[in-house]
Design a binder for these strands. Structure first.
Lengths: 190, 190
DNA sequence: AAAGTAGACTAACGATCGTTAGTTTACTTG
DNA sequence: CAAGTAAACTAACGATCGTTAGTCTACTTT
């Protein structure tokens, strides 16, 4: 029952095309052409174009939310939790460069799974926000607007997939360490 | 000869729709419906759908590039230049929330202006990178990977338009100050 | 009042879209 | 070897796409 290779190929090729042109601008014929088959043949493996998008986005969103819950619930201090969040994003971004683009830019085209997706995203963001607020309360973090801190970190982490291909000389561990320093300690030499 | 109001309306409504659904998913009939006219009537004011996208993106990219050149060429120190870059992005993001989305997510759909757009973007990024590198060399900035610093700041600044509507209680000056602190000084309480 | 014009309209074009139905091919299983 | 099946194919559907051509209306300018 491990015959899902063709379906997985379709998902992967679709994610790549969605990254380059966006969901709406990619046709079933585009996807089929990449696999050297006709568009109608895709339907032997997937239910619809929507089906493809849903699989890409929901599986990734679930991984983010699950792993964020683990970090949030751990006994570490809040600074350490922020380091783990950075490492989480670097890990996922390295392994899912194309899928990340759909998560960021194509979720609004979800027709059936959009409510569930937004629940996952809200859960993720709420945990992130709580860690920052706890860090401020405990005195670990400076008392600046927590929403700005959240926004700044999230914007950087969510778009890692755009820069990883440009930074070929750096490995995931190095990137994670560098990013933690820049995001948390700042860039000032003092 | 100031009769461009209708054209400007079309551009503005289009930018708004492009932000919500992306260029490819917005039809000329969608744009027309927002203005309570028929799609064919749009062509009394604009040349094509491409024309709309080009106007939105190129005018914004030119403003970024021009103002970045001014900052780069000034006599201030590099930290001060970074503060000015933050203020530049906050200023533009507040006044062009919809257009920023096209700049970030729809530039790949430009058919005629894409080379020019990429030149503008590269010029902008090169100046930004040079300021960071100069700051490292002069000892103003920590000697971490400059590409990571650039990426982190740019990711945050480019997606301000997504968060500004969510932070209604903050004004541009406050946002700019907060963001400068977070991006440059870090978030650690030490 | 006449002429010109800005800006809307209807109707239609060829292209492309996602998807379905029915068929064929090639391999695997009994 | 026969039967079954996975996965490709051709052909076509109705819908929608960007755009053009030609027309009408209402206002402005002379």
């Amino acid at each position: 029952m491990k015959k899902e290779t063709r379906k997985e190929q379709i998902i992967q090729i679709s994610a790549k095309l969605f990254k380059d042109k966006g969901y709406a601008a990619v046709s079933m014929r585009d996807i089929a052409k990449e696999l050297d088959i006709k568009a109608a043949s895709l339907y032997n493996h997937i239910e619809s174009k929507q089906d493809i998008l849903k699989i890409i986005i929901i599986s990734l969103a679930e991984e983010f939310t699950k792993r964020m819950t683990v970090i949030y619930s751990s006994n570490e201090n809040n600074i350490s939790k922020l380091h783990q969040i950075v490492a989480l994003h670097v890990d996922i971004a390295y392994r899912n460069q194309y899928e990340m683009a759909s998560l960021n830019n194509n979720w609004m085209h979800l027709e059936n799974g959009i409510t569930y997706y937004l629940e996952l995203r809200n859960s993720y963001e709420d945990n992130f926000r709580a860690i920052i607020n706890n860090g401020v309360q405990s005195g670990e973090l400076i008392n600046s607007n927590p929403e700005v801190t959240l926004f700044s970190m999230l914007s950087t982490l969510r778009h890692l997939y755009l820069w990883i291909p440009k930074m070929e000389e750096i490995n995931p561990k190095e990137l994670s360490d560098n990013l933690s320093k820049v995001l948390i300690n700042g860039i000032l030499n003092k």
